[in-house]
C-alpha cells in the first residue's frame, strides 16, 4: 500500500518528494565505495525478494516493507536501494509510478533510515537478546507507521479532499506494522546468532 501511482498527487508534492529523494540518493551513493556497490546491490535484491513474500495477518495478508532492517544494514544507502527496488517493481509488476518515484522513495526510505540511525547503534551494542528483539520490533513497527503517515501526508498535502481517505489509510497500516514488528525482531535475532557482523553497516570497503 506504499506505492502511490501517477495521477493522484499535486505537482508541489511530487517535486518536493523528488528533491528530498535526490538528496538521499546522492548521499547514499556517496556513502558506498566502489567495492561496496555489488554488496549493496545483492542486499537490495534480497530485500526486494523478501518483500514479495506474503505474510498472513488475520483474514488478509501483507507484504513486508523491511525498511527498518534495510536502514540497519545499509544506512543512508537505503535511499538508492529503495529507489532501485521501486523502479524494478514498476518495470516487473507495473506498481507505483514514474512521477511518484521520488515521493515513494522518501515515504519508504526516510522512516527506516531515521529509526535505524536512532535505535540501530543500541541494538548492535546490546547483549540482551530480549532487548534486541524489543528494539527491532519497535524499529519495524514504527518504520511502517512512519511510511503510513508520510503516504497520508502526501495525499493530504495534495488535495484537502483526500484527507478523510488519508486518515482511514493510517488504520490499514496497523496490521502490517504488527507483522513487521514480529518479523523484524525474528530476523535481527537470527542474524545476531548466526552472523552478528551482518547487522553493522555494509557500506564500508572491506568488512571481512
Amino acid at each position: 500500500m506504499a506505492h502511490i501511482p501517477d495521477g493522484i498527487l499535486s505537482a508541489p508534492v511530487l517535486i518536493g518528494g523528488a528533491a528530498v529523494a535526490l538528496g538521499g540518493v546522492t548521499l547514499g551513493l556517496r556513502s558506498l565505495s566502489d567495492r561496496a556497490i555489488p554488496r549493496a546491490a545483492i542486499l537490495s535484491a534480497a530485500f526486494f525478494t523478501a518483500s514479495l513474500i506474503s505474510v498472513p495477518v488475520g483474514p488478509s495478508s501483507v507484504h513486508l516493507l523491511l525498511s527498518g532492517l534495510m536502514g540497519i544494514m545499509l544506512g543512508i544507502a537505503i535511499f538508492p536501494a529503495v529507489g532501485v527496488a521501486l523502479i524494478l517493481q514498476a518495470l516487473l509488476f507495473g506498481f507505483g509510478g514514474l512521477t511518484t518515484l521520488g515521493v515513494n522513495t522518501v515515504n519508504i526510505a526516510l522512516p527506516g533510515f531515521i529509526l535505524a540511525m536512532a535505535i540501530g547503534p543500541i541494538i548492535r551494542s546490546s547483549h540482551s537478546s530480549a532487548m534486541r528483539a524489543g528494539l527491532s520490533a519497535l524499529i519495524g513497527a514504527l518504520s511502517v507507521l512512519g511510511t503510513g503517515g508520510l503516504v497520508a501526508l502526501s495525499l493530504a498535502l495534495s488535495a484537502p479532499e483526500y484527507t478523510p481517505v488519508a486518515s482511514v489509510l493510517l488504520a490499514t497500516y496497523l496490521p502490517l506494522a504488527l507483522a513487521e514488528a514480529f518479523v523484524t525482531a525474528a530476523v535481527v535475532g537470527f542474524l545476531s546468532r548466526v552472523q552478528p557482523d551482518a547487522l553493522s553497516l555494509a557500506t564500508g570497503a572491506a568488512a571481512s
Binding site: 545483492i42 523478501a50 513474500i53 518479523v183 548466526v194
Partner: peptide
C-alpha cells in the same frame, strides 16, 4: 518467527 528466519537466512546467504 519462521518467516524471520527465512529472511535472515536469505540475507546471510546474500552476504
Amino acid at each position: 518467527t519462521s518467516y524471520g528466519n527465512l529472511i535472515g537466512m536469505l540475507l546471510v546467504r546474500s552476504l
